[in-house]
């Protein structure tokens, strides 16, 4: 018991929570935006991988860190556009298209990475985002490093939660977005083209996913290596169900998840005799558990996974 208490009392744990949560916040917001307009985007895992690679490559070849984040967002939006064209006007299977995007985006990322770095014994590194000192409060005991000493993209992610929640619930655009996912026929009758709105939303959501990937190479780590996304994309898809498609709860889910992840990482180092693989399994099993708990209670957008064709029911 005292072991658990020691871990919980260490500032390092709480500092890690926001850091681990950041890519998940970007990713869940991206999934949420796509699914709010009625489109499942299983391209997330590949889009995050591609974002991680492009962000890293931009900085590695001389761009600054924010240019790297922007390049990742653009790349993500491009794959989002591809997913949107196939699933929205063509109405193809969202499951299979998304998986195709994931396979394409990740293998394309590896291909470009290998072209840029033909042979490397250890992956080349870049100078990542430094922790900030927000309001000069980072030196405060405990809350300082935890809340005010994170890197800039973490605060961007937190701000995006507020912005997205405000847009979805308080603006005409948000009403249109929600209608596109609940009842596109009614939206069309209002004079808004659901197809165009869906395409734009998927592109924006995919850009967010790619920024989550870029956070991995530009802030959490400082290099790119294949398979580094490690299922984070799929976890985001599960977190959105857990969050019942609400931005605030998505943030809560990402933080809870990151807390358990940070906790198990530390528990691993102090508990003897338990194979480390069991700890590594925990995040995936936890996501499945979250799905089981919420599956029947969550309010699914009514038109999720239903392609919209004018004049067809």
């Amino acid at each position: 018991m005292s072991v658990i208490f020691d871990i919980l009392a260490a500032v390092g744990l709480w500092e890690a929570v926001l850091r681990i949560a950041t890519p998940l916040i970007f990713g869940t917001l991206g999934v949420l935006l796509c699914e709010r307009v009625g489109v499942l985007n299983l391209g997330i895992e590949g889009i995050m991988t591609f974002g991680a690679m492009v962000g890293w490559l931009t900085v590695y070849s001389g761009g600054d860190l924010w240019t790297g984040m922007a390049a990742a967002a653009l790349g993500g939006a491009a794959f989002g556009l591809l997913h949107a064209i196939l699933t929205v006007p063509l109405g193809l299977s969202q499951h299979v298209t998304g998986l195709g995007i994931t396979l394409f985006a990740s293998s394309f990322a590896y291909y470009v990475f290998r072209l840029a770095v033909p042979v490397a014994t250890s992956p080349p590194t870049v100078e990542p985002f430094r922790p900030l000192d927000v309001f000069g409060l980072a030196d405060l005991p405990v809350v300082g490093p935890v809340l005010f000493g994170q890197t800039a993209p973490t605060y961007l992610a937190l701000a995006l939660v507020v912005v997205l929640a405000w847009v979805i619930y308080r603006t005409p655009l948000g009403l249109a977005l929600r209608m596109a996912g609940e009842n596109p026929h009614a939206l069309d009758a209002q004079g808004v083209d659901p197809i165009r709105l869906r395409i734009w939303a998927i592109m924006a959501g995919s850009a967010l996913m790619a920024m989550g990937g870029a956070f991995l190479t530009l802030a959490a780590f400082n290099s790119f290596f294949p398979t580094m996304v490690q299922g984070r994309g799929w976890i985001c898809v599960a977190l959105v169900v857990f969050a019942s498609w609400r931005p605030g709860r998505a943030l809560l889910g990402a933080l809870l998840f990151a807390f358990f992840d940070a906790f198990q990482l530390r528990l691993q180092t102090v508990v003897d005799g338990v194979p480390y693989q069991l700890f590594l399994m925990a995040p995936y099993l936890l996501s499945i558990l979250a799905l089981i708990v919420m599956a029947r209670r969550a309010r699914v957008p009514q038109a999720l996974m239903q392609p919209y064709r004018r004049g067809e029911r």
């Binding site: 490690q230 299922g231 799929w234 169900v241 590594l280 399994m281 099993l285 799905l291 599956a295 029947r296």
Partner: peptide
């Protein structure tokens, strides 16, 4: 899980891939 609780099997089968390899 899908038949009993209505959990979409896409995400659960994807996540179980990681669990299986770790096992």
């Amino acid at each position: 899980l899908r038949l009993r609780f209505g959990v979409d099997e896409v995400v659960t089968t994807l996540l179980l891939n990681f669990v299986a390899v770790l096992f």
